[in-house]
Amino acid sequence: MKRIIIFFVVFINFLYAAENIKKYIKTDNVSIYEKNDAKSKVIAKLPKNTEVSIIKKEKRFVFVEVDKQTKGWVFEFNLTDKKPEEKGKKTIIDTLANDNYASREGTVRANIRGLNEISKEYAKEKKISEKAINAIIKMEQRIISDDELMQFMKEGKLGEFSEGNK
């Protein structure tokens, strides 16, 4: 009988532990591996902010449950404790602040990719050359694909391909 009781207590602790540790995927296209090794099969690619339950940790990998069907290993630094921010929550201070706050709030949803118009106008006002403006536009347009980055990391044994000893 004692054994049964101990088993149940351990089982319940396990249930609670598994249910309470939640983390979130930090960036888009994060690989979930079959084993705690980036050379093993990729069983899923997860988008940013996906909630996962932590089951255990081995080396630099964490075994996670995404949903009932998907469980696998993810590189520990692809996870964050930070819950995605809730948008649109306003405090009384937000509301009572000067009217310009409305602009601040409103522009958050605007497209934030690319140089802002006022940055370009400021450069023209200061008579900064077109060359400098175009350099920043080109800088922003450089896109490194996930495959290219993963290949670079793999060659250098970096990120999830690192052997790490901390």
Binding site: R104, S119, I128
Partner: peptide, 19 residues
């Protein structure tokens, strides 16, 4: 400071740096 404001300040500063 909102992300939009940050991007504006940063964008202007980036142009200034290149210049």
């Amino acid at each position: 400071i909102s992300l939009e404001e940050e991007k504006s300040i940063g964008g202007s500063l980036a142009i200034e740096t290149v210049n």
